[in-house]
């Protein structure tokens, strides 16, 4: 494990904690896309099928359980919590999941490293994770006032993806045969989706004004 990978995982963990903090303590999910959260729950459920078949490390298993548990509990909070669900911007969060899920599944069925159930599911999770942030970005664009926690959540998620790219570059030069085109292309696409958000995030930070994305 290199420093980029560890920093990436910690940033990912921080993003989830920020979101849980907002939902759990402020009892609000305003500005948070349920569609994106449901896609992440599906991403982790399909990617971590190996949690029961392969043991990699205690770190790996614990982190997988955290991401699975947090993503499903966030979905539960937004859909069912008596107070939290009232703050959900249902009318703004209109992105249709299947428009992302179906193309990702078709792509995974045709473009994968091995044609086995676990491998196709794993590849599907990579493709789906790459685009899962889109409903959230669309919702941010529609939200006039993005609160700090929601902005930080998306920023941390984007930072996590960026750090994973540095991790792959590092691994490519330090580990023999570390070539994973599918992972890399999906990861780069995912990071590029944040480019626009990052630009406005840093602008608002530099000028000390509230974050707002142009419609």
């Amino acid at each position: 494990m290199n420093i980029f990978r560890l920093a990436g995982d910690m940033t990912h963990l921080a993003s989830v904690l920020v979101l849980l903090l907002k939902i759990h303590t402020i009892k609000s999910c305003a500005g948070v896309s349920l569609k994106t959260q449901e896609l992440y729950a599906l991403v982790f459920a399909t990617r971590y099928l190996d949690i029961v078949t392969d043991f990699i490390s205690v770190y790996n298993t614990v982190m997988k359980l955290i991401f699975l548990g947090s993503s499903f509990s966030i979905v539960w909070y937004i859909r069912h919590h008596r107070v939290v669900r009232r703050s959900y911007d249902k009318d703004q969060d209109t992105f249709r999941h299947y428009l992302l899920m179906i193309p990702c599944m078709l792509l995974a069925l045709f473009v994968h490293e091995k044609f086995t159930f676990k491998e196709v599911m794993w590849t599907f999770s990579l493709y789906l994770e790459a685009v899962a942030i889109l409903p959230q970005l669309v919702l941010l664009q529609r939200t006039r006032n993005i609160d700090n926690l929601t902005g930080q959540y998306v920023f941390l998620l984007g930072a996590y993806r960026g750090l994973y790219i540095f991790n792959w570059i590092y691994r490519y030069f330090t580990e023999p045969h570390f070539v994973h085109w599918i992972t890399w292309i999906a990861g780069v696409v995912q990071t590029l989706l944040y480019a626009d958000f990052f630009y406005y995030y840093f602008e608002s930070w530099k000028n000390n004004v509230r974050l707002q994305l142009p419609a």
Binding site: R5, D9, D50, I56, K64, N167, E175, P176, F178
Partner: peptide, 10 residues
Amino acid sequence: ADDNDVKDEL
């Protein structure tokens, strides 16, 4: 590293 090395990532 074997061909599953990337699977140690999250």
